[in-house]
Design a protein around this nucleic acid. Structure first.
Length: 572
RNA sequence: CGGGGUGUGGCGCAGCGGCAGCGCGCCUGGUUUGGGACCAGGAGGCCGGCGGUUCAAAUCCGCCCACCCCGACCA
């Protein structure tokens, strides 16, 4: 493709709306253009790269026996009501009405549709196992789209669905998908980390996420350098830091004046006690019901663990003072001691140690020496604390480390949630009807592109891994007014294309600086420069994007050298 | 949904009661030619929308909308 004919322009100025590297570079390189919040058009560069990512995904899915299908984006709302997922998705679900006033859903994912499809086609255990997948546009009305292609409302996603007769089969399917995902990330040049994940509202057994470590990531993972344990912070377990003076004897409860002291920070400083010797009170609304949480002052509540514990649909902090007071609580000085009529959940950290400082349930006073269970008894006691860096690993005791990351894949063992609700069953060897056992496995294609750029860039621009670069080579002609240059460049362009290389040919009348900067910004693996200076030696310059030095190659050998160099890159 | 911010040409921004501007990009001509050149001439705007105040509104006031960031949310 000639750049003079090419659709898409690079920007000189930094786009103001972009914060993360991938968002900035996608805009600056002219690959994407925003149409609405979380909705983008994809220009040729982006689309070429996305199609390559899809091709890799297809190859790896097919290699594990996957078969591609296509399903509707438009689905009847009843289908989503049957599985209860209209409720589960809530406002994230895009819905619309047709001319006959029937309600439809713009599918955010396709478990329902695929289950119906399988139900219609599977009768016997002989039809199983089955691995189906689709790469299609999905719609989610996200609360907050962000980060360019990281979180969008209309996006292409590969979803694979496995159907097995038993748990062993599911385990095999799951392992196959984990294997495929690792291959996909490797081929895209992404050092993904597999972490244990929360399985969400639907439940199910195992679930793993693949995270790309990056500061701009939305997720936090905890990793153990000792034994390799890795989990999303939502899910991670840890040994809570032990109390220093565990054997001290319980002292009598006492009142202490704490004017205006509301936070744990202030309390700890004011009284000169460590945060772990205080108890923190947090209030939530669980499906509209007020819940009182007690947790040691040095820990934070893990809302996912709490949500799973309460089996509620919506969990949020009590927002306003009015809500807090309405529940009979005193913000800032709330306490489980003497509290009545509010459902109370305690983190099991409070069992460690004694003589805690807690609120007094009246403004400007706290209590000293509160002890469990002497002074209060919660309704439920469980692990609801957020694991943090520095906490010891449950398995080996090594201090955990934390990192941020972008989720670039998620695999679930779903079990029979959908097949039971939608009646997808098979007859086993003994003629007994059983629900089919499902797994599902998702990768966002656009997010993967963003992740690749997030991972592979420098201050000049993108460094595309060869496997997914929009073009393999950037042919730059310097001083195209020089007939010798244009003739030599034209000839080389044709020879490169004939040799099967994907090449973007910069035949524009621009200065060297503009062309080099654009080449660095777009970041194709190979750059080839034809210029008067090089031609004097009968040569062109061949340079890899990630290397500093170019090599002079005689014009006759450029095509071969380019092919060989790219081949070498792919094998790395 | 809560908090913060921004809407002025394709991009980045200034102007904040009195003729709508600057830089980049774009078009034409010329000079240049190895890391975002120079000169000259040009095109391009319902100043997010609606309403109000005023002799006069991009500018002041009100309402609305869109977009960005933080949080909530997130199969």
């Amino acid at each position: 493709m000639r750049m003079t004919r090419f659709f898409g322009k690079t920007l000189r100025e930094e786009p103001a709306e972009a914060e993360t590297a991938s968002h900035r570079l996608l805009l600056k390189s002219g690959m994407i253009r925003q149409v609405a919040s979380g909705v983008y058009s994809y220009l040729p560069l982006a689309w070429r790269s996305l199609r390559k990512i899809e091709a890799i995904i297809r190859e790896e899915m097919d290699a594990e026996g996957g078969q591609e299908v296509r399903m509707p984006a438009l689905q009847p709302q009843e289908l989503w009501e049957e599985t209860g997922r209209k409720e589960a998705f809530g406002q994230s679900l895009f819905t619309l009405k047709d001319r006959r006033e029937r309600f439809l859903v713009m599918a955010p994912t396709h478990e329902e549709a695929i289950t119906l499809l399988v139900k219609a086609n599977v009768r016997s255990y002989r039809d199983l196992p089955l691995l189906l997948y689709q790469i299609q546009t999905k719609f989610r009305d996200e609360a907050r789209p962000r980060g360019g292609l990281i979180r969008v409302r209309e996006f292409d996603m590969k979803d694979a669905y496995s159907f097995d007769a038993d748990d062993e089969g599911l385990a095999r399917s799951y392992e196959a998908m984990v294997r495929a995902y690792k291959n996909i990330y490797r081929r895209c040049g992404l050092p993904a980390v597999q972490v244990e994940a929360d399985s969400g509202a639907i439940g199910g057994k195992d679930s793993h996420e693949f995270l790309l470590p990056t500061e701009s990531g939305e997720d936090v993972m905890l990793q153990c350098p000792g034994c390799g344990y890795a989990a999303n912070a939502e899910r991670a377990e840890s040994v809570k830091p032990p109390q220093p003076q565990d054997e001290e004897v319980p002292l009598p409860l006492g009142v202490v004046h704490t004017p205006g002291i509301k936070t744990i920070e202030e309390l700890s400083a004011y009284l000169g006690v460590s945060k772990s010797k205080t108890l923190k009170a947090v209030f939530y609304s669980s499906d509209g019901q007020a819940v009182f949480i007690v947790i040691r002052g040095d820990l934070e509540v893990n809302e996912v663990k709490l949500k799973n514990l309460l089996h509620c649909r919506e969990l949020r902090l009590l927002a306003t003072d009015g809500e807090v007071e309405g529940a009979g609580l005193v913000a800032g000085w709330a306490s489980p001691v003497g509290l009545k009529g509010v459902f109370t959940v305690a983190d099991d950290s409070i069992k460690q140690g004694s003589n805690f400082v807690v609120g007094a349930n009246r403004p400007d006073y706290h209590l000293r020496n509160a002890c469990y269970p002497r002074d209060f008894q919660p309704d439920v006691m469980a692990d609801i604390a957020l694991a943090q860096a520095g906490h010891a690993c449950r398995r080996c005791g090594t201090p955990l480390e934390s990192r941020r990351g972008v989720e670039i894949g998620h695999v679930f063992k779903l079990g029979t949630f959908f097949t039971e609700r939608l009646g997808a069953a098979y007859l086993d060897r003994d003629g007994v009807q059983r629900p089919i056992i499902m797994g599902c496995y998702g990768i966002g294609v656009g997010r993967l592109l963003a992740a690749v750029i997030e991972q592979n860039h420098d201050d000049k621009g993108i460094l595309f891994p060869p496997a997914i670069a929009p073009y393999q080579a950037h042919l730059v002609a310097l001083n195209v007014d020089d007939p010798q240059v244009s003739a030599a460049a034209e000839d080389l362009y044709l020879r490169l294309e004939r040799a099967g290389l994907e090449v973007l040919y910069d035949d524009r009348q621009e200065t060297a600086g503009v062309k080099f900067n654009d080449a660095d910004l777009l970041g194709f693996p190979l750059r080839i420069v034809v210029s008067p200076r090089n031609l004097k030696q009968g040569s062109a310059e061949v340079k890899l994007r990630h290397e500093k030095e170019a090599q002079m190659v005689s014009m006759d050998e450029v095509v071969e050298r380019a092919k060989a160099t790219l081949q070498g890159q792919k094998e790395e």
